[in-house]
Nucleic acid binder design. Sequence first.
DNA 1: TCGTATCTTTACCAAATGGTAAAAAAGCGG
DNA 2: CCGCTTTTTTACCATTTGGTAAAGATACGA
Lengths: 211, 211
Amino acid sequence: MRQAPNDATPADGATMSRIQLRNRGRILDAALEVFSKYGFRGATLDQIADEAGLSKPNILYYFDGKEDIHVTLLNQLMDRWLAPLREVDPKGDPLEELMRYVYRKLEMSQEFPRESRLFANEILQGAPRIGPHLERDLQPLVDRSVALIQRWIDAGALARVDPRHLIFSIWATTQHYADFEAQVGVLMEGKEVQSGARAHLDALFRRLLTP
Amino acid sequence: MRQAPNDATPADGATMSRIQLRNRGRILDAALEVFSKYGFRGATLDQIADEAGLSKPNILYYFDGKEDIHVTLLNQLMDRWLAPLREVDPKGDPLEELMRYVYRKLEMSQEFPRESRLFANEILQGAPRIGPHLERDLQPLVDRSVALIQRWIDAGALARVDPRHLIFSIWATTQHYADFEAQVGVLMEGKEVQSGARAHLDALFRRLLTP
DNA sequence: TCGTATCTTTACCAAATGGTAAAAAAGCGG
DNA sequence: CCGCTTTTTTACCATTTGGTAAAGATACGA
């Protein structure tokens, strides 16, 4: 009498059968859809089950509960979310490295809008579940990036800017296209968003950062 | 046997007794607290009642239901939210008018963070209740502002920027301090946020817009 | 101070929600 | 094809949730 799959080494793809892999994937995708729209409290297991095409008890066979699904999503998200900032190369050209970071963030906003909204929802609610994660993973990474940018500024390779607020601005402007998609859609109806956004953010941050 | 207060000319302060005025105010304040944190679906009447210090049935004496409270809040919000953009003066100095708009939006983000998060929550969920409002009120206002900015650009008073994306950037960067307060708090612990944000956004948009 | 209208509380209710137990069905290695 | 494991379904359950009916308390003008 083996244990249920959620008891084995969690999220370890190697120990999961094909069915487990497929259904956990379906559930997480459905949950992303629902959580990103309604937040944790506003989402229901019935919605997720419906979206996933599985029964509610079946979903609770793969996950320990609503919270477990949400935490799993959030953990998956953090890796993907922080990757672009990790990839900023201290040895590259300062301005081009930062602009590449802006592009990457904008692309992620366009490619993974649900992930962006999931994150936004969690932060809006006061980061109750991801808060510790932020302190453990995000804070050191940001501190490191801030120090790097400051060194670049001191070396005269960038204009004098507050690195922390710069990072906030990059996050805010890029994620806006995902998080406020409903509003952007109304105000840009018919118009092409993507290339315009890229050109605009290019101008915005290039002008700010060019010494 | 007079009707319940929610049947009279709604939100008409003149026809409301002192008690009605006070309790409706309490309820709306409590609802703002709860809705801005959890969104419409995630908020409960019990939470609102608790926060307002009133019983649940008492709350339903003043409002027709959960939706009514939410819609009332959203309507109140839209006026306040669009005011700064309306106040941009076509006859003023272009750069200074836009910078003043940036400051006003930043101040509102700091003064009314709950309102900002209420709005963010509504848009995140696809603007189900405020959507028509956006098309009726926001869209024309933005179109008008875009046209004005374009005229300023054509007159050589501003750098060549896409006015629509400029507006998005202003919204995104200013509202970020309210909507992502939980994250900003973690990354700026101990540090002063307000003045740094103002200086940074001043540099960001001044550099972008100066011809 | 009395009577009426306003306001508040108590006691509910039906539906929705997160979750469980256990039986039934489907996979799958031998 | 058999037997065991994994997966899915059925039938529940306790709690929460939005909302109502009606009695009780309070304000307030005449």
